[in-house]
Design a protein around this nucleic acid. Structure first.
Lengths: 334, 334
DNA sequence: CATTATTGCTAATTCGTTTTAGCCATTGTT
DNA sequence: AACAATGGCTAAAACGAATTAGCAATAATG
């Protein structure tokens, strides 16, 4: 591929001049308009593309941000990623994304990899295992923003949904519909966002004098196999026979719907359903599933904005701990 | 971050020696075992990470492949991307992915961007607008493999599904169930994979003397708005009242289900449904949707393997035009 | 007319690696 | 004892751009 040097040779000037001309520094560097014109012309004609690798090495900036999510094939994360990519591109940044796949150690490995790639900043949905490496990044003043959750031990910006309020509104929605025996099906993941959701449920139910005992909670082992999880939900529903159930995540919701289908329960008459985090699936289910929607766009935008602030590309954000409100998408399942 | 030079200084040897030691060339380059040990030790202690940017500049290899898909938020593509990423990592390659979002010109822009990033190879789901730029890549002997479809004018490897056979099997499946008034709902996209699917339908129906007229085909404008498309399908189904419908893509299928739901049709009694390309949604629908499954994993694996062959990383593949067979996932909708 | 400013451009260094060519000391060969 | 072979290491160049410092020619100034 044609290099800047080739281009210089072609025009018959020094690489320095070409560099100035291409970077719009002609005026400042007193390159005559006529020469600048000729250089630009030649660049176009050669189809010159700057070698970003060389630029990055020289400038120390790759103009790339690293995005680490749990699983890029997951609806929530792939949409998040897409919006982040769009948003970042408006600042001239590219995004490279990677999934931890919930594998121990994978997060660390990915941070290492992105570090070797010299990304300029990080957008991370963290888990506890990454705390050490993230601390190291922060100590070296490398811009990091957490999304969807945060590690309480870290002094690091985050953008997430107000999980507590989200669940509270979901429970209250069910209460208004006169359901009283409500269950909460979640995953036993020790992350802040899951804790907040659980707390939201327990507190609201307790406040209404409806939290009788722990059997209203089903906590699935985080790393259980799909089939096992479905079976556990099935067994639970059969035994406890709640009037309504609130699924704590999209993924759990899908497992739950599978279980409900296996049991041939009639929704919402036998069992009302609300799911935290919406999914294009839900609209097509019969009946369509009511969900607590996370505003994916706002989250992505917010996170990118803060990150750009940290990187000195945009105005530094004042608020660096952002919780965005959820909304209820009323459908037919409750 | 610590550089190789820092490391050399710390150990008290030349950068050359350190480079050899870290790259496992100690034996070959006669670096004593004792010194090698000391270097490795110091590297670990410093937490040394090679700067891939510098490596890439020097070696001319980024160990990155560029993946261009239509829309990363789409179930099919995000799963494809995920498998490709896994597969590539087994060869020591990273993947950066981008979506064309069906926007004119975006594909070219993305190829440019990846070119500037100096990616070592390309995996592309092409559209006609990219032909020129892809030709340019091929002329420069840059490895490119097409996925999911191909441009007939290009001498370039591809991995895709046998669309023709897939639709044939779908139609025959419906015929075996004694449906005779079958419709095919597709999108008026002038790409080979869509042509093959349409042809598969028309040919099979004709062979059985069941292709009466063009009204058995509904071709939606490619870039129509979601709501418009749903409405058109609705109107079509009401007017033509087919016994069974075969949706040509996942996306069209979802629109179709929406339409069917709006019409409150009873599936499969009022209308049987089969969709080309499976989706996790389909299993949860009531009734669950029968689908023609594309083996995403095989496609991803096949494409990566050919690409690695082209890049000289793996054995060069003999077959470079691969069509993979589909299978029918029998559920309740037909 | 001598000095200083300005204009228009370039040589040379740098970023962090890899790699080629080669240096010095020791050992082996005749 | 002279010479080659080997062992153990390093100096320097290169990749492709950005940038700093500066050079020559012309114009402006007193």
């Amino acid at each position: 591929m044609a290099s800047l040097k080739d281009l210089a040779k072609l025009v018959g000037v020094s690489p320095t001049t070409v560099s100035f001309a291409l970077n719009g520094r002609s005026r400042e560097m007193r390159i005559s308009e006529e020469l600048t014109e000729r250089i630009l012309e030649a660049a176009k004609q050669l189809g010159y593309q700057p070698n970003n690798i060389a630029v990055a090495l020289r400038t120390g900036q790759t103009k790339i941000i690293g995005l680490i999510v749990e699983d890029i094939a997951n609806h929530f994360f792939s949409n998040l990623a897409k919006t982040i990519e769009d948003e970042a591109s408006r600042f001239g940044y590219r995004v490279v994304y990677c999934s931890t796949e919930n594998m121990a150690g994978k997060g660390d490995e990915l941070i290492n990899m992105l570090q070797r790639q010299q990304v300029d900043g990080y957008l991370i949905t963290p888990d506890a295992s990454m705390e050490e490496r993230m601390t190291a990044l922060l100590k070296r003043d490398i811009p990091v923003v957490q999304i969807d959750r945060y590690l309480p031990g870290l002094d690091c910006p985050y953008v997430m949904v107000d999980n507590h309020q989200g669940v509270v509104s979901g429970v209250e929605f069910l209460l208004k519909k006169k359901y009283t025996r409500i269950s909460f099906v979640t995953v036993d993941l020790d992350m802040i966002q899951m804790k907040e959701r659980k707390l939201g449920f327990v507190e609201t139910m307790t406040a209404h004098g409806l939290f009788k005992n722990k059997k209203q909670l089903l906590e699935l082992p985080y790393s259980s196999v799909r089939e096992d999880a479905v079976e556990r939900i099935q067994a639970y529903l059969e035994k406890e026979k709640p009037q309504a159930v609130l699924f704590a995540t999209n993924y759990v919701g899908i497992l739950g719907l599978r279980a409900i289908k296996n049991l041939q329960l009639n929704v919402p008459d036998d069992l009302a359903v609300v799911c935290f985090d919406d999914n294009e699936v839900f609209d097509l289910c019969t009946p369509a599933i009511t969900a607590i929607r996370q505003p994916i766009e706002s989250m992505a935008r917010g996170a990118v904005k803060i990150l750009m602030g940290e990187m000195g590309v945009a105005k530094k954000s004042a608020r660096k701990q952002v919780k965005i409100q959820t909304s209820i998408v009323r459908r037919d399942s409750a």
